[in-house]
Amino acid sequence: MSEEKDTTAPPTAADAASSTGEAAAADSSVDLAKQNEQTVEQQNAINATIKATQPKVGAKEEVDALLPEYEGNPKPGFRKGVQDLGKRYSALRRVRGDGNCFYRSFLFGYLERLLQGIKSVGDANTKAMLELSRLRQVVHDSKAALIALGYEEVALDDFWQTFLQELDALPNMEMGQLEINFREEAGPCEYIVWYCRMLTSGFLKLNADRFLPFLEHTVDMQDFCQREVEPMGKECEQIQIMGLCEHLNTPVKIEYLDGQDFSGQLGSITLPDTGAEAMVTLLYRPGHYDVLYPMTNQ
C-alpha cells in the first residue's frame, strides 16, 4: 500500500465528502487528510471540465486541425509532423484525455474498422466477419483464463458479457451507432474499455518473465497490474500496449508526434511487430492518444 497523496484517479464525490476531518483540531493527520481532500477536489474539478468540454470520442476532423495547437511552438517538429501526417492520413478523431485514451482509441478504432469491413461487400466483408469471430473467441476465452489467474468471476462477468454482446451486435449496427455508444457517459462501452484493461493485465501476468525487465520500479507484476493497469484512468505505457495488442493479436501502428525533428516521415512503431498490417493507427502526442485514418482506408 503506497502513499495516498498522489491522487490521480477520480474518486467519488462521496469519498471527497467523507474526509471531513472534524474533531481533532490542529492534528497533522487531519491536515494531511484535508490536503488529500483538496487534491481530490482539484482533480474532480479538472475531470469535470474535461467531461464538459471533450466528448469521449470526437467527430472525424482533418489532420490539419491540429496545426493551430502548435502555433509558435518552439519545437518545429510538431508543425512539420502534422504536415507530414496530413499527407498520409485523411482524418483524425480526438479521444477524451482522461487516462483511458489509449484503450478507448484502440478499441474504438478497431471496432470501427471491423464495422466498415462488415458493411463492405466481397472479400472485405468476409475478412471482417472472420476477424470479428476471431476477436469474439479471444474475448470469450479470456474470462476462464482470468479466473485461473485468481480474479473473481462475479467481478468480471458483467464486463465480459457486455463485451460479447457488443461484438454480437456489431454486424447489425449502423455506422454512426458505434460513435453514439462510445459517447455515452456511463454506457456499456465504459465496461468494454475496462475489460480491455483486464485483457492487458491477464496477458502481462501470464508473461511476467518477459515483461518484468521493462518495469523500472517494481519486481512484482501482480502489484504493477493492480496499480497501473486495472484502475480506470491510469495512463498506459508501451508495456500495456504490448500486453493488450499481443493478447488480442491485433497490431496497432502508432505515429509519434513528440516535437522531435525528423527527416522523411514522422517516426512510428507497430506493436506487436510481426510484419502484419496494423488494424488500427493511433496518433501519440506526449501523454495522449487519438485515432488516425490512413488515406487508403477511405
Partner: peptide
Amino acid sequence: HFNTGEICLNILKKDWSPAWSLQG
C-alpha cells in the same frame, strides 16, 4: 481515523478497480 472510522487505503480511492468485490 479514530473518530470517523475513515480508511486510508489506495484501493478504496485512486487504485480502485472493478476487479475488487466488496469481500475483496
